Simulated assay, not measured.
Amino acid sequence: MSETRGRLTVRRGTVRDADTMLALFDDAVRWLTERGHTGQWGTAPFSAIPQRVQQVRGWGAAGALRVAERDEAAGLGLAKVRVDCWAGGGGALVQYYVRAGFTPVETVQVEAWTGRVLEVRV
């Protein structure tokens, strides 16, 4: 995962984006697992879990998938983009987003899971 600078474009994802999204989830699971942080999504790649594959493909089919690309999101009328992520494991994932230009704005607690909401102005 590398730091990206520039404008951010968010587009509606489709089923055609599902394999790319699954690969990104697989990379994230691998990255977190290598660092001993399994509290976000466990240790199994998303692409190896039929329910996860179906979920991501369903998001694409329903138009509920969003793909963020650095470019010109303001043209879509967006003032900011928000993401949420796991805040455990020493905050390494939060710091990844901070290095990418996001600012933490809120902490979220869902049962035993602690997350951070971050945003970037576009």
Rank of each mutant, 00 (worst) to 15 (best):
M1I: 10
M1Y: 10
T4S: 13
R7V: 02
L8M: 15
R11W: 04
V15F: 00
D17G: 06
A18T: 02
D19A: 10
D19H: 05
M21V: 13
L24K: 03
D26A: 06
R30T: 12
W31T: 14
T38Y: 01
T38C: 03
T38H: 05
A44G: 04
A44H: 05
P45N: 08
Q54T: 10
Q55F: 11
W59Q: 12
W59C: 11
W59G: 06
G60H: 07
A61I: 02
A62K: 10
G63T: 05
A64E: 15
A64C: 12
V67F: 04
V67W: 03
E69T: 13
E69M: 07
E69R: 09
R70E: 14
E72S: 10
A73V: 07
K80E: 11
D84Y: 09
C85G: 15
C85I: 10
G91K: 01
G91S: 03
A92L: 11
L93T: 14
Y97M: 00
R99S: 08
A100R: 06
F102T: 03
F102A: 08
V105G: 00
V108P: 00
Q109N: 02
Q109I: 00
V110H: 10
E111T: 09
E111M: 07
W113H: 12
T114N: 08
T114A: 09
G115W: 00
R116K: 06
V117W: 02
V117Q: 07
L118V: 02
V122A: 06
V122P: 04
